[in-house]
Design a protein around this nucleic acid. Structure first.
Length: 235
RNA sequence: UUCUGGCGG
C-alpha cells in the first residue's frame, strides 16, 4: 500500500497526472493517503473540478476523509471559486469528527478569501482562538487580491499592534497591494520598516514592486538607482 | 507516502 502510494506521489510530483491516474486505477488497495495524493495532484495542476470529483468519489467509495482530505478539498474549492461547496465543507468538518485546528482554520479562511468572501474569512479569523503569521498573511493577501489597500494597511497595523512579526510573504502581499493602487510613499515606508524594524531581507519581488512604483511616477533615474542598490545575491 | 498564506519550485 505504501509502495503504491509512493509511486503515485512520485508521478504527481513529476507532473504526470496521466501516469498517476493510471497507477491510481491499477491499485487494488487504496487508503485515504491514496485519495489525498490524487486530489492534491489535480489541485496543483489547477484542475479543481477533477479534484473535487475525486473527493466525492472517495466518499462514494466509503473512505472516510481525514484532515488532509479536507485541507486539499478546501484548496480546490478556493481555486475553483466554489463558495457553496467550500461553505458546506466548513460547516460539515466539525460534524465528521475532524479536529478544526489552526491549519484547518487557515485553510478555511483561505478558501473564503479566494472565493471573494472576505466577510466569511474575517468571521473565521475573529473567532479563531489562536492565529499565526499564516492567518494574518491569508487575510492580508485576500484584501491585496481585491485591491483593498486600506484593509491591507489596517490588518498589517493590527498585526504589528499584537506583536506579530511580519515575514517575507506578508510583505509580498503588502507590496503587491501598493503596486496595484500606486501608493509609492506608503510602499517606501513599508520598505524601510521591513528592513529596520522587522529585519526582513527584501527579495527580488519586493524590489520590483518598489521600482515599478517609483518609475510609474516618472522618477526613472530614481528607479534605476534603486534597482542598482539591490544586492546581487537577492533571492 | 498525502498537509494551511505571497513569490519560486
Amino acid at each position: 500500500l505504501v509502495a503504491g502510494n509512493t509511486l503515485l506521489d512520485m508521478y504527481i510530483k513529476c507532473g504526470s497526472i496521466d501516469c498517476a491516474s493510471k497507477v491510481f486505477k491499477e491499485l487494488h488497495e487504496r487508503d485515504a493517503v491514496t485519495w489525498n495524493s490524487l486530489i492534491s495532484g489535480y489541485t496543483e495542476l489547477c484542475d479543481f473540478s477533477s479534484a473535487l470529483k475525486i473527493f466525492s468519489d472517495m466518499q462514494a467509495d466509503g473512505i472516510r476523509p481525514d484532515k488532509v482530505t479536507v485541507l486539499n478539498a478546501l484548496k480546490a474549492c478556493g481555486g475553483g471559486g466554489c463558495l457553496a461547496q467550500g461553505r458546506l465543507l466548513h460547516c460539515s468538518s466539525h460534524l465528521i469528527e475532524i479536529e478544526v485546528d489552526l491549519s484547518m482554520e487557515n485553510a478555511i479562511m483561505d478558501m473564503y478569501c479566494r472565493c471573494g468572501s472576505m466577510e466569511d474569512a474575517e468571521k473565521v479569523f475573529t473567532h479563531s482562538p489562536i492565529v499565526d503569521v499564516v492567518s494574518w498573511g491569508t487575510i492580508i493577501e485576500g484584501y491585496s487580491l481585491q485591491g483593498r489597500f486600506e484593509m491591507v494597511g489596517q490588518y498589517f497595523h493590527d498585526m504589528r499592534m499584537q506583536g506579530m512579526v511580519a515575514d517575507e510573504g506578508i510583505f509580498s502581499s503588502v507590496f503587491s497591494a501598493c503596486c496595484h493602487v500606486g501608493h509609492v510613499n506608503e510602499a517606501r515606508n513599508f520598505f524601510v520598516s521591513m528592513r529596520e524594524d522587522q529585519r526582513v531581507t527584501p527579495n527580488m519581488l519586493h524590489f520590483n514592486c518598489m521600482a515599478d512604483l517609483i518609475g510609474r511616477i516618472g522618477h526613472l533615474a530614481d528607479a534605476q538607482k534603486f534597482l542598482e542598490s539591490m544586492p546581487t545575491h537577492a533571492s
